[in-house]
Amino acid sequence: MLEIKDLHAGSEGNEILKGISLSVKKGEIHAIMGPNGSGKSTLAKVLSGHPAYKITSGEILFEGKDLQGVSAEDRALNGIFMGYQYPVEVPGVNNAEFLRMAYNARLVKQGKEELDPMDFDDLLQSKMDMLGMEVKYKERNLNDGFSGGEKKKNETLQMALLEPKLAILDETDSGLDIDALRVVADGVNKLYTKDKALILITHYQRLLDYIKPDYVHVLSKGCIIKSGEKGLALELEAQGYDWLTKV
């Protein structure tokens, strides 16, 4: 589904990713771990098409097509979802209205008819019920004044609606207490099906107790320095990153 080949990328002339290769197939969950400043969030931004980050060499193929030059909205419409570490607050934009716009943009792209507000509300309610979210999420403005946990839940709700093929969750666990983490992780697990793929970017192993990855990669100084199965995460948790990065 996603093929990253010897990717070099950075922003403002600084090369941050220095040759990353990664292959993610349908039905797989990959965890990308690494110390602060290793390039985890940069990778997420490059994958989502952030204009400040440029690919200097290498390529990213999504379903066989090169993503170079593809805008953020087209990536989203084609099924890539980026779950933010710090979801942006947008005061004045009603959450439910925004969700409907995003949902309908997807429908239009697929050549389908847009959902009217009533039908959309039914759909939204069903997703919210599934995730155990209160009605207040519909009434409030997009992430405006949300707590860290609320923002992440709202990201999960967006993922539930948009049903991406590939979801990249950037530090979804950061800033969450254990209860909020469990809610978000449960949500992600419910949404994850075998025809989808998931990339979890995280600093801590804790998230991986709830969402079990098939593969774990360690990123350091812009390179993947070790890949392995789930057990690698436990090793990292026990020993820290030092034993890898000092090599």
């Binding site: 933010y84 934009v93 716009m101 948009l162």
Partner: peptide, 20 residues
Amino acid sequence: FYLKTRGLSEATARTLLTRS
């Protein structure tokens, strides 16, 4: 950018934010 990563076009995102 946040709105664009949810599939809204640049123009729609800008209009929405201006209104907001």
